[in-house]
Amino acid sequence: MKAIEMTKQKLYFLSGTMCTPLLWNAVVAELTQFDCIFIDTTPATSFDEIAVLLDDILEENAFVVAFSMGAYAAMHFAVSHPKRIQKMIVIAASANGLSAKELQLRKNTIDFLEKHKYKGISTARALQFLHPKNHQNNELIQVIKDMDADLGKEVLIRQLKATSLRIDLTQKLQQVQTRIHVIAATEDALVKIDDVKYTQQNIPKATITVLKNCGHMIPLEMPNLVRESMLRFFLKY
């Protein structure tokens, strides 16, 4: 008799600004327990459009792994669809809106990009996403540059415009029924650890893993830990 093939649990991945599935390569390389699906949000022009996209793609009681901007988008979706995502891992993100300083920086960046030729992300900028211990890791730096090059200037401008309008979701997240695990780094130069902890503390039953010696690019810098966290969280019933 022919063996019956078991259907694998789908695991949906949402990446951050100017990130492609390359971000997850080391994480999913040995993740054979799941059917990994990478959701492309780059065509979207707002978080509402991303929510429509997720509504079309996600199955009921979905399992989601989301990073940075993608994590905020997933939380935004969970607020308006409180029963749709069963379990979610949020990486390097808080539910806060952007500060006035960050909004101004984004506006300045958009203005510059619209008037000048884009030569790709600089090494100096790429290093801001990594922990100092990885500043000599040319492989990680190249992954960041390759993702940026794959997407290009048009996508960068669209993503910066689409994801700048962020309301504080903290209070609304108290109503969601999604089980959430948060992964954050104390030395993340882009997302303050106190903001991440505040988000986690305001989500019912949410748990957290806090990393040291890691920057913002947690899936690149500590892929084994991310994979192990995913296995524990998603396979535990």
Rank of each mutant, 00 (worst) to 15 (best):
A66K: 01
L156Y: 09
A162H: 05
N137L: 04
F129R: 02
F112Y: 13
Q104E: 14
Q128T: 15
A66G: 09
F63Y: 15
Q142D: 14
N108M: 12
M69I: 02
G120F: 02
A100H: 04
L130N: 03
I57N: 08
D148W: 03
I57K: 14
L127N: 01
F129W: 03
H135G: 06
F67R: 00
R166M: 09
A149H: 13
Q177W: 07
I167P: 04
S94M: 02
F112R: 09
K115W: 04
H76C: 07
T123F: 01
K172R: 12
A78Q: 13
L169K: 05
D111Y: 07
K145H: 11
K115E: 15
F67E: 04
H131K: 08
K117L: 12
N108D: 15
S94T: 05
L130H: 02
L156M: 12
A74F: 03
N108P: 01
V65I: 15
N96I: 00
R106L: 06
A73M: 07
A73H: 06
A66T: 04
F67I: 01
G152F: 01
I167Q: 14
V176A: 03
S80L: 08
P82I: 00
N61M: 03
F63H: 14
A95F: 00
R166Y: 06
G97D: 08
E60R: 12
V65W: 04
F63K: 12
D148P: 02
H116S: 14
L165T: 14
V143G: 00
F63R: 09
R125L: 12
Y72R: 07
I57Q: 13
A126H: 00
K83A: 10
Q174T: 15
L169F: 02
F77V: 05
L103T: 10
Q159P: 00
M69E: 11
Q104F: 09
K115T: 13
E60N: 14
K115P: 01
V90Q: 02
